[in-house]
């Protein structure tokens, strides 16, 4: 009962904050001095990217907890979070490219460390989902994917290092596109990050519930079958 109430509360908060963030991002904040209106996508882009990092972090943590406890509850959380992570990561990459095109003149820059790390994370978690799809049993699915999730996250600092080394040998002229972030823009950004975080928690709760129901259906099927 309590859980249901919590879910409703989170969903209401998510809706309210999303509405506020839309207002703040599109109407309240003035257009950027250099980038103009294009910059507005930035509020949703940063929030998506943030959620993808958060989601992958949760997958890692839940994976560790699963290996410790062997409780499928944690495995369900890890899987659900990875799925949501992929979704937001894809959104983050698309919105980022849309923003980059008019600002940098290109959709993608390999030498940008944030883009690079996000791309690597995206690949790792696509591999993570592929692994789960090919597992032979429930236990092995949970075990192997938890181990792979842990390996994947440990790899990230090394990707970071690899990119740094790579940049040393391929020096590029950095286009200054930052401009100054006015207080109203910072506020909009914070609000949209909060809105997306509530949205993430809400989707995660629902997704985990769906997994739980699937498991119950399996159990019932088993009973009926013999």
């Amino acid at each position: 009962m309590l859980k249901n109430k919590l879910r409703i509360l989170v969903s209401i908060l998510a809706i309210i904050f999303i509405l506020i963030s839309v207002y703040f991002a599109l109407i309240y904040t003035p257009p950027h001095e250099i980038m103009g209106d294009v910059q507005r996508i930035f509020y949703f882009h940063v929030a998506s990217a943030w959620i993808s990092y958060l989601a992958f972090g949760v997958t890692f943590f839940a994976g560790v907890m699963y290996l410790k406890s062997k409780d499928f509850k944690w495995d369900n959380i890890a899987f659900s979070s990875a799925e949501i992570g992929i979704l937001f990561c894809t959104l983050g990459i698309i919105t980022g490219s849309l923003w980059a095109r008019p600002i940098w003149g290109v959709f993608w820059r390999w030498e940008d460390i944030k883009l690079f790390i996000t791309f690597v994370l995206w690949l790792i978690f696509i591999a993570y989902l592929a692994l789960r799809a090919n597992a032979k049993s429930r236990t092995s699915k949970a075990n192997l994917s938890a181990v792979f999730g842990i390996i994947g996250l440990i790899c990230i600092p090394f990707s970071f290092g690899a990119n740094r080394i790579w940049q040393q040998y391929h020096p590029t002229i950095l286009v200054s596109s930052e401009g100054s972030l006015q207080p109203s823009m910072a506020l909009s950004l914070i609000i949209s990050v909060i809105a997306f975080t509530f949205l993430y928690i809400y989707i995660l709760l629902v997704r985990v519930d769906i997994e739980k129901m699937k498991e119950e259906i399996d159990k019932l099927k088993q009973k009926v079958g013999g």
């Binding site: 690079f116 790792i124 591999a127 032979k136 390996i151 990119n163 080394i165």
Partner: peptide
């Protein structure tokens, strides 16, 4: 331990090896 293990090995290896140790090694 997976089905289609021949395909899954490169799928799992590329993201964790290529963008970490191999990328560093290539530069060095």
């Amino acid at each position: 331990n997976l089905s289609q293990s021949e395909v899954m090995l490169p799928v799992l290896l590329v993201p964790v090896l290529l963008f970490t140790v191999i990328m560093s090694s290539v530069s060095v």
